[in-house]
Every structure is written in structure tokens, then in C-alpha cells.
Amino acid sequence: MEFKDYYVVLGVDPTVDDKAIKTAFRKLARQYHPDVSKHPQAEAKFKEVAEAYEVLHNAEKRAEYDELRENRSRRQSHQQQGRQSGASGSSQHGFAPGGQGGFEQSDQDFSDFFNSIFGSANANENGFQYESRRGRAESSAQKGRDVEIEFPIFLEDTLADAVKPIEYILPYQDSQGYRQEMKKSLKVKIPAGVADGERIRLKGQGTPGSGHAPHGDVYLHIRLVPHPLFDVEGHNLTIALPLAPWEAALGTKITLPTLSGKIQLTIPANSQSGQRMRIKGKGLVSKTGTGDLFAVIKIVMPNHADETTKQLWTQLADKAKFDARAEWNTEPNKERNKEWSNQP
């Protein structure tokens, strides 16, 4: 087991007082707290820092840890001397405190290293407790812990009631106080119209309560899976509708995909890029009704043009008499340019 130097983790000298330890912890906690930090390893870093603080801010634990730390450094220097004098050295690797006693089951938040010194039960008895550490064994009856699970769902599956299978692992403490896990498989009815960020409660499906208290609940945190074609705006959907320039100019009929199947859509002549066409009732289902689908026109040029096509474009350019940049020469723009050109 790898030895953890808690002083290094907090970036403090082993001789510093409790106040300096607290200051170092607060600084790192602000940097890595999972609720405020965007650091990719924020949670792991924070746990490491919290574990170090847990030990070093408690006089008793700090004294115990310091003793182990000193013993280790004495052993290391002894081994080094042994090696230097040609001895084979001991087979010890890393750190094995307490005659390798320790606990088979590690505490879910503190490292094996911590548990091997202070025991997993000890981790739950002191001041600092992280979220998942709240579910300590209590002698009195107490309702089990609630569990929150991220639940990704496809847009298509929100249109009507759906039954979805779900599997999850529930941690719990057995009567001996050891951490155990149980696997649960359920089928859940997901009602039509669930939205991103909503929570679905599954009563009594959380961790078992202590004594005769009821189980906790499970909360499914709904996450809508991004769709390759549709974007969500409230309960409306948008889709980019690519059109060839001649389709936009002359109008056409196209087949448009919607969440509930394909439909025919008539594109009027002289359609503009960016124009939104509303298809009523083809959005997402919500409590206040069904949203709409907006097809946003995007005029797309062909990648290559052969000689004939080029000639036809040239003919069109000659006959159309169209200035695509006419708005650059409007009066307000001219006035503005004049006004700003007179500035010193």
C-alpha cells in the first residue's frame, strides 16, 4: 500500500500549527470542491485533500500519523544504509502499518491507507464527512439513504409513456458495520413529457433503513440525450433544413424527418436562408401541450459545378440584376460612415 504524505497533499510543512493546516485546506477545498470546481479531477483531488485534513486537523490522529510517518522514514533510512553496505535489504514494499491488520473492506470515501490506520468505522465518527459518508450505521431506527441516479433518455422516448429497465448498485452497511453492495434491477414507468433536469422519485428503492425504518428513495435525474438532427428549445425542436439555391428560389416539396416519423413539407418560392418554418405539434410533449418543430432553412451550394452549370449560373447572374450586398449601401449606413469619418 502506498504511503500518503498528508503534509505534501496539503502543501504544508510538518511543523505547522493547526491554523496553517486549516488555511491550506480551505484554499485547496475552494480550488477542488466538486460543487464549484471545473477541474477534471476535482472530486478525486478534493477527497485526497479532505482525507489529509481529516487526519491533520485532529490532534490525536495527527500524533498517531506523525509517529507512523517518523517510523517509516527511520525504516527507509535504515534500509538505505543496509543497501549501501551491500546487504540484501528487507522485502518490505511501501507501507504496512499495524502488522498488516487493517480492514478487508475499505471505507467508500477514504483511501485504504487511511482505513488501515484509523479503520473504516473511525472515518464516520469525526467532524468532516463528505456526501456519501452520511449513511453511517445508527443504532436507532433511521430511514435509508436516498440515492440519485443520472438517467439518460432519448427525445423519442419522451413522446409517450415508456417502460425502461434500470440497474444500479446500492451500497449499505450490514449488521456488523461492514460496507456491502446489492444490485437492483427494476422496470420504471417514465411518463410522457419528462424534461431535462427533472427528477423522478422511485419510493422505497434506496438503501435499506436501520432498525425497522423504511428504505430510502431513488431519484432519477433526467438527462435528455442530444439528438443528431434536432435541437431542443424549451418544448420546441429545431432542425436545419438544407436547400439547393434553386429549391429556395422556385419552391419545392421535401420529406422532413420529425421525432414521430417523416412528413411532407412544401417550401414556398423565394425562401431565404435562416427563415424558420413552423410545423405545429411536432415538438416535445409537455404538461402545457405539445411543442412545435421549427425547420430553419440553410441554403447549400453544390461542391462542384461542371461547365454547363457554370454557364447557367452566368446566365442567371446576367439576367437576375440582384445585389446581395444592397444593405451595405443603405442611407443609415452611409450617414453613420460619414459621421464616424469626421471624428478626430
Binding site: V163, P165, S185, L186, K187, V188, K189, I190, P191, V194, E198, R199, I200, R201, L202, K203, Q205, L220
Partner: peptide, 10 residues
């Protein structure tokens, strides 16, 4: 597998 009745945003 048990079918569970769910409540949305209770």
C-alpha cells in the same frame, strides 16, 4: 424484475 410506479417532480 419489479415494475415501479414513478412520480415526476414530486
Amino acid at each position: 424484475i419489479q415494475l415501479i410506479i414513478s412520480e415526476v417532480n414530486p
